[in-house]
């Protein structure tokens, strides 16, 4: 995208959860939640990460944040590798990478006042932060559209949208380079969702923060992202600029996802490819291409060889044997 190194660079990231054998020796094996994904995000850019539940998108976010330890792969933040850092060094790096979770209710400690919630990250790095904490908190409240008189309230006195603003203020407090938004607007009502989406876009314009925007909602992802990656069973199957991915989706799974999304137009009930069946279990994944069991155009080759992501022109990467280019 640009000459400067990407803000966040993820290389072959994997996360495997071992399943413990039961007492009678049943079970065992492993869940390959994330299976070698790679992507990079530039300053001021938003990368959307879409997929259905269980595709590993949230685990990927948590592994990047080291809330769960990645099994393999590298995570580079601003040109520095962070996946192997010890707890103390990682704590310092956390200033540059923040997170916004889905549920604004449980993301806030119900016993703390709003001002203390937003001040917490500032106090954690008080020595490294110039200026008074009080002024910074007031400024953050202003930036996310909360009133100063709300500072002494407790989380339950806020509405869902206001709570998510508090979460965003906390994430912004340390002026991070990247914010990982894990289903950040999925729990909100439509009208409030629009407020928060606009807020995120405005903050990005103002601060140049990069977003990894994890969501299952295709329309929201299209609205907020510059580039979009589609995940299926732990792997990225397609990654491209937004216009290309939504305009000419190349992977059969992306095509099916887009076609399945309900369109708010009673006359727009189009012919759609409705996928048969459901996502296979990440414990027993199909051989070769994981999508082949549901793919409308699977061929014999798909069962044998795992397709790799390759450029099909214009920075559009697809992992499918059947796509030419």
């Amino acid at each position: 995208m640009s000459q400067t190194p990407p803000v966040l660079d993820v290389r072959d990231l994997s996360k495997t959860f071992a399943i413990r054998r039961s007492f009678f020796g049943r079970g065992g094996g492993a869940v390959h939640a994330v299976d070698g994904i790679s992507f990079a995000i530039a300053e001021g850019e938003t990368l959307g990460l879409v997929g259905e539940s269980g595709c590993g998108k949230s685990t990927a976010g948590r592994a990047i944040l080291r809330l769960t330890e990645p099994t393999a792969g590298e995570v580079w933040l601003d040109g520095e590798r962070i996946d192997g850092l010890g707890a103390g060094e990682m704590r310092l790096k956390r200033r540059d990478i923040q997170v916004v979770f889905q549920d604004p209710y449980s993301s806030l400690n119900p016993r703390l006042r709003a001002r203390d919630i937003v001040a917490e990250p500032l106090r954690n790095f008080a020595s490294a932060i110039p200026g008074g904490i009080e002024e910074r908190v007031a400024d953050l409240f202003d930036r996310v559209g909360l009133r100063p008189d709300q500072m002494d309230r407790f989380p339950h006195e806020f509405s869902g949208g206001q709570r998510q603003r508090l979460v965003i203020a906390r994430a912004l407090a340390l002026k991070p380079r990247v914010i990982i938004c894990d289903e950040a607007v999925s729990a909100l009502d439509v009208s409030v969702q629009a407020q928060v989406i606009n807020l995120l876009a405005r903050l990005q314009r103002e601060t140049g923060v990069a977003f990894l925007f994890i969501s299952h909602d295709l329309a929201v992802v299209e609205h907020v992202s510059h580039r979009v990656a589609v995940m299926y069973l732990g792997r990225i199957v397609e990654i491209a600029d937004k216009a290309a991915l939504y305009g000419q989706p190349r992977h059969p799974y992306t095509q099916a996802l887009l076609s399945a999304a309900p369109v708010p137009d009673p006359d727009g009930r189009r012919d759609r490819t409705i996928l048969k069946g459901e996502v296979p279990s990440p414990i027993n994944r199909p051989s070769g291409c994981h999508f082949r069991t549901r793919c409308p155009s699977a061929a014999a080759e798909c069962a044998k060889v795992s397709p790799v992501l390759r450029d099909v022109g214009g920075n559009h990467h697809v992992a499918c044997h059947l796509v030419e280019g």
């Binding site: 956390r94 979770f101 400690n109 954690n124 979460v167 994430a171």
Partner: peptide, 20 residues
């Protein structure tokens, strides 16, 4: 709880997390 994970993610030290 997500708020404890959020505290970890904002660089809060372990003893502060336990106490607060």
């Amino acid at each position: 709880q997500p708020y404890v994970e959020a505290a970890v993610a904002t660089g809060t030290r372990t003893h502060v997390i336990i106490r607060r």
